[in-house]
Structure formats: structure tokens, C-alpha cells
């Protein structure tokens, strides 16, 4: 296992991708589907409408970087998995 470069996980979107993969392996399309940025009010009962999603090319770039740095791996089933530690 490579030593993780701190800057790789400085980006919260890459952390979110890792979080999505921590439950189980997912294809690129499944990760994209699950990747949503929203904020709910803490006090008000207002229901917000804003949902931000990640673009296809940006997701590809993040996945390539995480794979290269040994944090995730791509299986033969085309799903990405969290790389085993140790």
C-alpha cells in the first residue's frame, strides 16, 4: 500500500467518493448517481431545492487519481472498491 499523499484527500469531493465506495463497490455511473451535494437548514423548516452533482469528466479525473494513489482499485466487474489496507 502506498503512503497516502495528504493533498489527495484534501479535496472533500474525493473524500465523498471514498465514502460512497466504503459501503460497497460501485461502477462509475453508480457513483455519479449517488454523488449529491445538498444542505438542509438547521433551524428553519424550509425545504431546499438545490442539489449539485459531479460532472462525468471530473469524476473520471478523481477516480483515476484515487486509483493511481492506491486508495481505490477497479475490479474486473468494472466496479471501484476501496483498496485494502496493509
Amino acid at each position: 500500500m502506498k503512503k497516502t499523499k495528504k493533498w489527495v484527500v484534501e479535496n472533500n469531493y474525493r473524500k465523498l467518493i471514498m465514502d460512497i465506495l466504503s459501503k460497497n463497490g460501485k461502477t462509475e455511473e453508480e457513483i455519479r448517481e449517488e454523488f449529491k451535494i445538498t444542505l438542509s437548514p438547521r433551524v428553519s423548516s424550509y425545504k431546499p431545492e438545490t442539489i449539485l452533482r459531479i460532472s462525468s469528466q471530473t469524476l473520471k479525473n478523481h477516480l483515476r487519481l484515487l486509483e493511481r494513489e492506491g486508495l481505490i482499485k477497479k475490479g474486473e466487474d468494472e466496479r471501484y472498491y476501496i483498496a485494502e489496507i496493509g
Binding site: 437548514p41 438547521r42 433551524v43 428553519s44 424550509y46 431546499p48
Partner: peptide
Amino acid sequence: GKETENGVIADFI
């Protein structure tokens, strides 16, 4: 806003 012991939790929408 909701007051807390040391400050506030607040929404700006």
C-alpha cells in the same frame, strides 16, 4: 437562529 450555550446555530436562505 437557535441560541446555544456558547453562540448560535443559524440559517441564511
